[in-house]
Design a protein around this nucleic acid. Structure first.
Lengths: 237, 237
DNA sequence: ACCTGAACACCGTTCAAGT
DNA sequence: ACCTGAACACCGTTCAAGT
């Protein structure tokens, strides 16, 4: 009797090992960041998910940074740009787009931290910039100020998300999420009013958490500032 | 002839393996970040520098993050706080302190990136916050706005440094420093004016580098914004 | 108490060899 | 052209064992 052939179809645990492709790799990476956070999106872990070896991925992806940038660009598709064409005060609508951007970053552990560094250049990112510029233009913010302001607006949104989103569990962290925060709060509470009069007067209000209110206030600060601060001589356009 | 004894003093390559201490560990780490960048300040590399095993460091330092925070706190001692008591417009002096802070972060590869995440609570950090608060107070910025504003000011300075400082050469990078930037610039240059009218109009001015001018403008934007944007109802103090 | 070697469980990236 | 296993050069952290 001939042995039963053990063909490729006999193992059905995963969906029949599709051929590799950049799109498939990025899609799997996106699934992985949702399930385990960006820190787990490593070449080796991702290859394992794709039932191959890490080396195989280098045909489609230059390196880990590029992979992370691709994941970010993909997830940026979830930013709500509808306020651009909605009606109402341009400031409010600008705030809404920025808030949506921050929320997307906030939703995936480690994503905001990586957005601090990555500079995507995909369609979703371009559309986001285009949307912000359109709203600033609607508000008659001078072009030069708008252009320079984009960086500040996005940077603040990114940094806020990075600061308050789940820490990238790069390895199982020993330190509880808010331990550093607690340490600082404790120091401020017990600070000497003589050496640090300002700190003592403010107390832990200084660290009064993230909160929607604080993020929204930040956006307003930036919008007001960008609107009212002319570019230095010679740079104005 | 008796062989020459090879005692501990016969090897003078390093200064006679001092006893470990937290201060010594941090000092060595600071030296390492100066020489090789923060990415090289790993438990193993640092232990090697101290002529011991990585495990030994855990007596004095909780983990790698805490080590990096200690290095940051140490280097923050170089921030120039003298403008606080200098004379002149408070805005200019505030700008000078923030610029000095950004320059310190800028000077060490990887430091700014880590400052994005770390929350130090040492003396140098406290003095920096105290200085910023004192200057805002001098400018009669309402207390609540000043407190919330600190975060934005420091965050912007940190993010600017992170964005434009040497990339943390975590491992020998294959990607040239400005490669992602170049990719984005290229995309913007060739963007369709129909789909992206704003982007096409601005062109690569959007990415017009870091430059002192841009950082200074950013500080002015934030100061103006913080000064002129009241806290939301119920939060004002 | 402090220090250590060894172990465990990971990394990114390259390269020669196969199909 | 694409894919692979194996190798190289690293990581952080824990733990039992020593002093």
């Amino acid at each position: 009797m001939a042995e039963e052939k053990v063909g490729p179809r006999s193992r059905r645990e995963r969906p029949a090992k599709a051929a590799l492709s950049r799109a498939g790799i990025v899609a799997t990476a996106v699934g992985l960041v949702q399930a385990e956070g960006l820190a787990r999106v490593t070449m080796r872990r991702l290859a394992q998910e794709l039932d191959t070896g890490a080396a195989s991925l280098y045909v489609y992806v230059r390196n880990t940074d590029e992979l992370h940038a691709a994941v970010l660009e993909e997830l940026l598709g979830a930013v709500d740009l509808s306020p651009v064409t909605a009606k109402g005060d341009w400031r409010d609508r600008l705030e809404r787009v920025l808030t949506s951007y921050a929320e997307v970053l906030f939703a995936y552990p480690g994503l905001a931290q990586s957005a601090m560094v990555a500079r995507p250049s995909g369609e979703h990112y371009l559309k986001l910039i285009e949307a912000l510029l359109a709203l600033l233009d609607e508000g008659d913010v001078p072009k030069g100020q708008a252009g320079w302001g984009i960086d500040i607006l996005l940077g603040f949104a990114t940094a806020s998300a990075a600061e308050h989103s789940a820490p990238d569990p790069r390895t199982k962290k020993t330190v509880a999420p808010g331990e550093e925060w607690a340490a600082l709060a404790n120091v401020i509470r017990n600070v000497s009013a003589e050496s640090y009069p300002q700190l003592a007067a403010h107390g832990t209000d200084l660290l009064a958490g993230p909160g929607k209110a604080r993020l929204a206030w930040g956006f307003r600060v930036l919008i007001n500032g960008v609107l009212s601060t002319p570019l230095p001589e010679g740079e104005a356009k």
